[in-house]
Design a protein around this nucleic acid. Structure first.
Lengths: 195, 195
DNA sequence: GCGGTGCGATACAATTTGTTCTAAAAGTAT
DNA sequence: ATACTTTTAGAACAAATTGTATCGCACCGC
């Protein structure tokens, strides 16, 4: 019943993954190997092979670590524009400044051929979209949104465009652009002010 | 002065890249190696090393080949919804059925570290967005759109969401979904029908 | 202290990646 | 057709990567 829990296991595992994440960030997926992690950490290569018998499993765990970057909880106390701006601001930070932001293209590329990586990303993105949808839902219950607003599609759009701009189109992703983006989403979802 | 231009050079290069593209498509980036291309084409491994001394250069050329997929010209003769649906349908085909669609994540990942690849994608995407913007512009001149419609942002959205769904979120990208997507973009851009 | 377990080190095999050399084949120029 | 140049095929070889197996040692929980 009681787990023995040798602290060395967790220690080497955490150290290895930490350094592996740094390697991934600095030198790309291909640089993440038992050998490189061994020399960078001082952990013996054979020990690393014991923890991750296959290279794929090592990289997968590194991706998981990268993907578990700060997942900001939704802010839903209103008003809608403030909540949405807060969420999207956090997304911008996540893409521009966290390990996940740096590593996302590599993980996405891996997901094209690796079903495990694909599953990790799918879960991750589903959570992100759900967070934004929660913002819409809360605003809807407060009566701030148009009845007809397709909140599911709008939430997806809100997230899709930043990802697209940064990784695919290579367009800038700064505060200034974000403001206009949030404005547009707001205008599409909320009741126009009575004049 | 006159370039000798031995036809064998182009022949082996084209054959190798053609087959390499197929390998990339069927087995992923990692399967594209001098060895695999050699056995698949019958070209000697040493010859392939002569053309591409580094593995990276071989893969890069395959990516560039994949990126030069058919670029559909915009349809702008109206009505707006038909034009937009036609454009987006072509995008869906491009993503689901062409080499580019299969390989895009790999090229995007490469673009994170390779400035040449980055430039290729930037140009490619700029053209795509411009094509959709042309559809909006033509409809605008026919008076089909709202004056206030932010056509630049909407065109970007129209393209961003399919890319996001397919490559990042891992969501389906079928005709049924596309219809609702086109509907939404239309509703945001066009004058509501007078009731 | 004791048994069990993780760790480090080494040795080894198989595959991958890249280089080098030579002879043969194909192309170009005269 | 002949002479010259360039490309190709093939093999041998080196180096790095990937993975396995074994050993003694150090550490952990009890």
């Amino acid at each position: 019943m009681t787990r023995p829990k040798d602290p060395r296991l967790a220690a080497t595992r955490n150290l290895a993954l930490d350094v592996a994440l740094k390697i991934l960030h600095e030198n790309g997926v291909l640089a993440v190997t038992h050998g490189s992690v061994s020399t960078a950490t001082g952990i013996s290569r054979s020990t690393l092979y014991r923890h991750w018998p296959k290279l794929e499993s090592l990289r997968n765990d590194v991706f998981l670590l990268a993907a578990t970057s700060p997942n900001f909880p939704p802010k839903t106390n209103g008003p809608f524009r403030a909540d949405l701006a807060w969420m999207m601001g956090n997304l911008l930070i996540a893409l521009n400044e966290t390990p996940w932001g740096q590593v996302a293209p590599q993980v996405v590329a891996l997901a094209a051929t690796d079903s495990q990586a694909r599953a990790v990303i799918n879960d991750f993105m589903r959570d992100r979209i759900a967070s934004v949808e929660a913002v819409f839902a809360a605003a809807g219950e407060r009566g701030e949104l148009l009845e007809s607003a397709p909140v599911g599609q709008l939430a997806e759009m809100a997230i899709a465009v930043p990802y697209f701009r940064k990784y695919i189109a290579g367009l800038p992703l700064d505060r200034e652009w974000l403001d206009t983006h949030v404005d547009l989403i707001c205008r599409l979802a909320t009741k126009p002010a009575v004049t």
